[in-house]
């Protein structure tokens, strides 16, 4: 299960930050509302995908710190 998730989800997680951020940057005022709706959906889709991940902890540094303490692994924290 984990292997499957690592191979299928991690690559998406690694590039999704670019996609979301660039989407935000190219927003034009005339389509701001529609763009915001689309951006919101992308964030939600991304979250749904990531919440199921065995590899990534989504939006919860405190949980990451506890996990790091428990496993002895260092933390890789990625801001999109």
């Amino acid at each position: 299960m984990k292997q499957r998730l690592v191979s299928s989800l991690t690559p998406i997680a690694a590039i999704a930050p670019f996609v979301l951020a660039l989407t935000a940057f190219v927003a034009s005022s005339s389509s701001a509302t529609a763009q915001r709706r689309g951006e919101g959906q992308q964030v939600l889709d991304d979250r749904e995908l990531m919440l199921d991940s065995d590899t990534w902890i989504y939006g919860d540094l405190e949980r990451g710190l506890r996990e790091s303490r428990k496993t002895g692994k260092p933390i890789l924290l990625v801001f999109r």
């Binding site: 930050p17 989504y58 540094l61 949980r63 996990e67 890789l76």
Partner: peptide, 19 residues
């Protein structure tokens, strides 16, 4: 790509999409 994925496994990976 394989090396990146293997190394990710040695970390607790946390993803923040908002500031």
């Amino acid at each position: 790509g394989k090396a990146v994925l293997e190394l990710l496994d040695k970390f607790v990976c946390v993803r923040m999409v908002y500031a």
